[in-house]
Design a protein around this nucleic acid. Structure first.
Length: 877
RNA sequence: GGGCGGAUAGCUCAGCGGGAGAGCAUCGGCCUUACAAGCCGAGGGUCGCAGGUUCAAAACCUGUUCCGCCUACCA
């Protein structure tokens, strides 16, 4: 085996084997319990970023764990057609060839998109494979697949027939660049510096003017009223009068509406029903006129008089200029406002009145709220439940139509002859009413509409498939909080609606990946770390381990190369520890019937291993991924490598045969195997590579289908742990003295021990103490305190290291004093507690006892140190 | 405006009622034949600030400051 682990050659080899053997493929029906999960489908246009890497690493850990634990495990992968994003990509390609999509035509354009998808779409799938994701690729789905498309139409038709989908004129967010309506969620609000403009609207009777305040003066061209609060003592009297709209010169009414906040601005509100939601609502209450002034390109339209054709932002400047010239502009003040921007292209969206399709949400949301409240769906960490409720309880109807071409075309047909509307899953030939020709609705559905159906459409719905029976509801969903509303909430609603059951039992929400400074990674900031670069540089296992280690619940993941380096070192540690173990094991297949070695370190490591097994299982089941990684790191490095392998060396190198070394080899074999299996869900590649090299392997032909270790109480051995701790404690004390007094590692020392009854234990393992602490001569005393020695105490056991030849007394005195001071400080705190009457009266007995024991131990230790101090002082004279 | 989260060692973070922890970084000593991507040892924190509850608070409550996020129809 190489001295340093080299991931590159190895990763590809094993991934291909796993695929070839079909290990990722779940069974449609099985007597084994099932575990299922659907992937948050990445965009077909996407490439792997840190968020995906974290998300999929966690999913893979859980999947591999369940698969090894005997579950019929399905991790269903796929991609999302990403309507707007994909259309943008292909439009850009066309533009390079000098075409606009209108010149190409809808049908040809869509063909073009499919071509693009076949060629360059879905690179992310290959990237997920490099991450080691054990998805069932035989079940891979795409939201535009025929099956899923049919399911989408089915859902649309059912919802339409129930009256939950309707078509209406309403204010929606319009992206003038993408030329489509967006849902509320797709408009991202961003605090932007702007101005509040105060504009005079003269009263029609010439008796003065009202001043309105607005942030979007260009919309004044579409004003159809000025609203004041009827209770407003200043303006109430104007209700019923008219004002003259500046520039336009037409009369518009002053109306009274309690919506108007008297405190804000001037207390008079200009009403533009075609370009503001609130104004639209006011319009409905008062039956006002609607005048749209901005067109679909974001330019002023024919209603904007001499501004027709002007861009909306240019118009803003020009109109302010004109108002100023004509004396209508009273003043302007700086003002911060939340401006909605298109989540795809960052263009400022225009609230505009438009005929769109909507989905009524309240009836769908209510059962979905209940499902979470009743914990049919658990959201973890719990904090996200609150966020979920907050949004769901204030949910508004969802604008589901998009004016683009790439997507699920709305299954509605219009008969122009008789105005009949046909809504059906299959394409109708002619109007059933008049036999006239039909024209299909040109809009497509919001991409998230099909994503919302993902957990059941991917399993074959609306057909009653075995997969659905076996895997729905799925066990778990792992995703980032950024799509809690976009996706998770909608899946819960749709799952309940169409499957009669929640889509998943648990939702684990993980954090965002940020850079080392805590900033969100983004292309514009230039602080993105490309996962594939990291994989190339450090290997997949190291990368996955890092993400796992940092994935603490409710915390963002701060990623830095240093952390990844640390993980790479750990992977290498595992590699080298395995290398040594394999050398020790040789070709021999250790007898697996050896359950109990009499060698203390063997008993200890088995006991510790059991506890780690228990902790890892619980950690994965409770989504405490960082705990799992930390537990394994500490156990493998600081217990297995630092202690077990070191202490076992004399035996397995053949220097000592006091103990049954076959039993030790068996213990080593089993422990290494357990470690590999425990690590496998997190670092699949290196563990497989080593597993394949184990002599006389267990039945499994791959670690990924081997049995995950199961906690075995019978190997837990408290006494062995205590005894081993004593031995390690003694070694620590000697090492500490050596380190502190500056004894070089190659210089052997003498050690004299005064025990409190552990003499026979220490004598049995004397050889190992001497070996690990570099001790030449180890002896025991009863009462006489060795002279001229450094002293250390472990649980009442005194360890003396004669220093005559080695070091000066003064230095040792300083060391002892430092330690005594530490003890004094601790004793002071404890005695304060113990002397407190209320503490003795109210604290639980075990807490009091614990403090008393501790106090006793500390004072005993102090006494012993003091004795040594006096001794040394005498010598020093 | 409403809501949520964070503030613990130089850095990144665990811990969330009973002895302040880890990794990295730092300092000292080691090429000890699994690993220098390593080994041994050490130093380092009035747990954001102020109150309160409790025998006991980093943890629970209240207030406060500073960061971050989500959400919203005050133009």
């Amino acid at each position: 085996m190489e001295k340093v682990y080299d991931p590159h050659a190895i990763e590809k080899k094993w991934y291909e084997l796993w695929i070839e053997k079909g290990y990722f493929t779940a069974k449609s029906s099985s007597t084994a319990p099932s575990f299922s999960m659907v992937i948050p489908p990445p965009n077909v246009t996407g490439s792997l970023h840190m968020g995906h890497a974290l998300n999929n690493t966690l999913q893979d850990i859980v999947t591999r764990f369940h698969r090894m634990s005997g579950f019929n495990s399905l991790w269903l992968p796929g991609m999302d057609h990403a309507g707007i994003a994909t259309q943008n990509v292909v439009e850009r390609e066309l533009a390079k060839e000098g075409f606009h999509r209108d010149e190409v035509g809808r049908e040809k354009f869509i063909e073009r998109v499919w071509e693009w998808k076949a060629q360059s779409g879905g690179t992310i799938i290959e990237q997920l494979k490099r991450l080691g994701s054990s998805c069932d690729w035989s079940r891979e789905r795409f939201t535009m697949d025929e099956g899923l498309s049919r399911a989408v139409r089915e859902v649309f038709v059912r919802l339409y027939n129930e009256g939950l989908i309707y078509r209406d004129n309403y204010i929606i967010n319009w992206c003038p660049r993408c030329k489509t309506a967006l849902s509320d969620l797709e408009a991202e609000h961003e605090d932007t510096k702007g101005f509040l403009y105060y504009i005079h609207y003269p009263l029609a009777d010439g008796s003065g003017h009202l001043t309105v305040a607005t942030t979007r003066p260009e919309t004044m061209l579409g004003d159809t009223a000025v609203a004041v609060n009827p209770k407003d003592p200043r303006f109430g009297k104007y209700v019923g009068q008219d004002v003259i709209l500046p520039i336009v010169g037409k009369k518009i009414p002053v109306i009274g509406d309690s919506y108007v906040d008297m405190e804000f601005g001037t207390g008079a509100l200009k009403v533009t029903p075609a370009h503001d939601v609130n104004d639209f609502e006011i319009m409905k209450r008062h039956g006002l006129e609607i005048v749209r002034v901005i067109d679909e390109d974001g330019k002023m339209n024919e209603n904007a008089i001499h501004y027709e054709g002007t861009d909306r932002f240019d118009c803003r400047e020009k109109i302010v200029e004109e108002l100023k010239e004509k004396g209508f502009l009273e003043k302007l003040e700086p003002y911060n406002l939340g401006v909605g921007k298109c989540y795809r292209c960052k263009t400022v969206v225009e609230p505009a009145l438009s005929l769109q399709w909507f989905l009524k949400m309240k009836p769908l949301a209510d059962p979905a709220i209940k499902a979470v409240r009743d914990h049919k769906v658990r959201i973890i960490p719990e904090m996200w439940e609150k966020v979920y409720f907050e949004w769901m309880e204030n949910i508004k109807d969802w604008c589901i139509s998009r004016q683009i071409w790439w997507g699920h075309r709305i299954p509605v047909w219009y008969c122009d002859a008789c105005n009949e509307i046909h809504v059906s899953v299959d394409t109708p030939d002619r109007c059933t009413k008049c036999g006239g020709a039909l024209r299909q609705e040109s809009d497509v559905l919001d991409t998230w509409f099909s994503s919302g159906l993902w957990p059941f459409t991917t399993l074959g719905w609306p057909d009653k498939t075995d997969d659905l029976k076996t895997f729905y509801p799925t066990s778990l969903l792992i995703t980032g909080f950024d799509i809690l509303f976009f996706w998770v909430a909608r899946m819960i609603m749709m799952g309940i609606k169409f499957m009669g059951d929640v889509p998943f039992k648990d939702v684990y929400i993980h954090a965002l990946v940020r850079d080392a400074e805590g900033k969100k990674m983004s292309k514009s900031k230039g602080n993105v770390i490309d996962p594939l670069t990291i994989i190339d540089q450090f290997g997949t296992d190291a990368f996955r381990f890092t993400l796992t280690m940092l994935a603490a619940q409710g915390r963002d993941v701060m990623l830095s190369e240093e952390r990844i380096e640390g993980s790479r070192n750990f992977v290498n540690k595992v590699w080298n520890a395995s290398k040594l173990s394999l050398i020790f094991m040789g070709d021999e297949k250790p007898s697996l019937t050896v359950t109990q070695s009499s060698f203390l370190p063997d008993k200890w490591i088995r006991s510790r291993t059991q506890k780690v097994i228990r902790e890892v299982k619980a950690g994965i089941e409770e989504y405490r991924f960082n705990d799992v990684a930390n537990t394994l790191y500490a156990f493998v490095w600081h217990e297995f490598c630092d202690w077990y392998l070191e202490i076992v060396k004399p035996n397995l190198y053949g220097k000592v045969d006091t103990f049954d070394n076959t039993a030790t080899r068996a213990t080593l074999y089993r422990t290494l195997t357990d470690i590999l299996k425990l690590l496998h869900p997190v670092m699949p590649f290196v563990t497989e590579e080593i597993y394949q090299r184990l002599p006389g392997r267990e039945a499994a032909e791959s670690i990924m289908i081997s049995d995950f270790p199961v906690f075995n109480e019978s190997e837990v051995n408290a006494e062995s742990e205590t005894q081993m701790e004593t031995i390690m404690g003694i070694i620590d004390v000697i090492r500490n003295i050596r380190g502190e007094t500056g004894i070089a590692p190659n210089v052997k020392v003498e050690a004299i021990i005064r025990t409190t009854g552990q003499e026979s234990l220490l004598k049995s393992y004397e050889y190992y103490v001497k070996e690990l602490a570099k001790v030449e001569k180890l002896s025991f005393v009863d009462s006489t305190t060795p002279e001229h020695s450094a002293v250390g105490v472990y649980k009442g056991i005194e360890v003396f290291v004669p220093l005559k030849k080695v070091i000066d007394v003064a230095k040792e005195l300083g060391r002892i004093e430092k330690e005594i001071n530490k003890i004094d400080e601790e004793c002071r705190k404890i005695s304060l507690k113990l002397s407190n009457e209320s503490f003795r009266g109210k604290a639980p007995a075990e807490v009091i006892a614990k403090n008393e024991t501790q106090f006793g131990e500390l004072t005993a230790k102090k006494d012993k140190l003091l004795a040594s101090k006096i001794m040394l002082e005498t010598i020093a004279g």
